[in-house]
Simulated scan of single mutants.
Amino acid sequence: MQTPSITLAHETPADHWEVEALYDLCFSPGRTALSSYRLREDVAPIADLCWTARDPDGVLSGVIRCWPCYVGDVPVVLLGPVAVHPTRQGEGIAGLLIYRVTQVARKAGWSRILLVGDLPYYSRFGFHPLSAVVMPPPTNPARVLGLALTQDAWAGIHGPVRKADDCISPR
C-alpha cells in the first residue's frame, strides 16, 4: 500500500461544513447519538489536534478531531472521530492523521490519548485496552483503548470518563 500525495493541515472554520458532511457520509447523521458525543457536546475540540487531509486537487479525503476530557481528575485527549472518504479508504490516510495527532499531542505535552475503536486496527499505532477506564454507556468496554505518550502514562489511571467543562491543559 502506498500513501497518496496528501496534504495535512489544521482544520479551520472554513472546513467545518465539508468536514461534517464527510463525517455524515462515513458514520451517518445518527453518529451524534453515540455516547462519545455526550463527552463532546458544548466542548471545544483541541484545535491543534484537529486535522484535514486533502488530495492534490484540494478534495477533502480524510479528517480527524480530538477533544479534551478527564478520566477521574486526569486530563486526557479523546481521539475521534477519524474518517476517510469511502473512495480513499485503504490508502493509509487514517494512519497519516493518527500519527500526526500523536506527534503533535506529544510535543504539546499531552501524556495520554483515549478512543473507542477496534483493537485490531488501533493496536498498530500502540493503542491497548483500558479495562480500568469506564466510558459512558452503552460503550462496549472492550473497545475503550488508550495510548501512552509518555512512559507508563496510563499506570494507575482509572475511573469514569467525563467531559471537560473548559479547555484543559495537558499533563
Rank of each mutant, 00 (worst) to 15 (best):
S5W: 11
S5T: 15
D166T: 15
T12V: 14
V84I: 07
P160Q: 12
W67K: 03
H16Y: 15
Q2Y: 11
D15F: 10
R143V: 05
F127L: 03
W154G: 00
C26T: 09
P138F: 14
F27H: 13
P138H: 11
R65T: 11
E91N: 06
G117L: 04
P138V: 14
I113E: 01
A53G: 07
P160H: 12
Y121G: 05
E20Q: 15
W67E: 04
L22E: 03
R65C: 08
P13H: 11
G159Y: 12
G109F: 10
L79D: 01
I157W: 04
C167N: 04
N140M: 08
Y99H: 12
K107P: 00
L25R: 06
Y37K: 02
I6P: 05
S35F: 14
I113Q: 00
A47E: 15
G72D: 05
G62Y: 02
G146M: 05
G58W: 14
P68Y: 05
S111I: 02
S28T: 15
P129Q: 04
D73L: 13
L22Q: 03
F27P: 05
I6K: 07
P56K: 07
R162P: 03
P136M: 09
W51I: 02
T87I: 06
E41H: 12
Q103Y: 07
A53C: 11
R124D: 01
Q151G: 07
T52N: 05
V74C: 10
D42R: 13
R38C: 08
R112E: 04
Y37W: 13
G156Y: 13
D24P: 04
R40T: 15
Q89P: 02
T7F: 10
D73P: 06
V104N: 00
R106I: 09
A44E: 15
Y70N: 00
L96V: 06
K163Q: 14
V77H: 00
L8W: 07
E20A: 15
F127I: 02
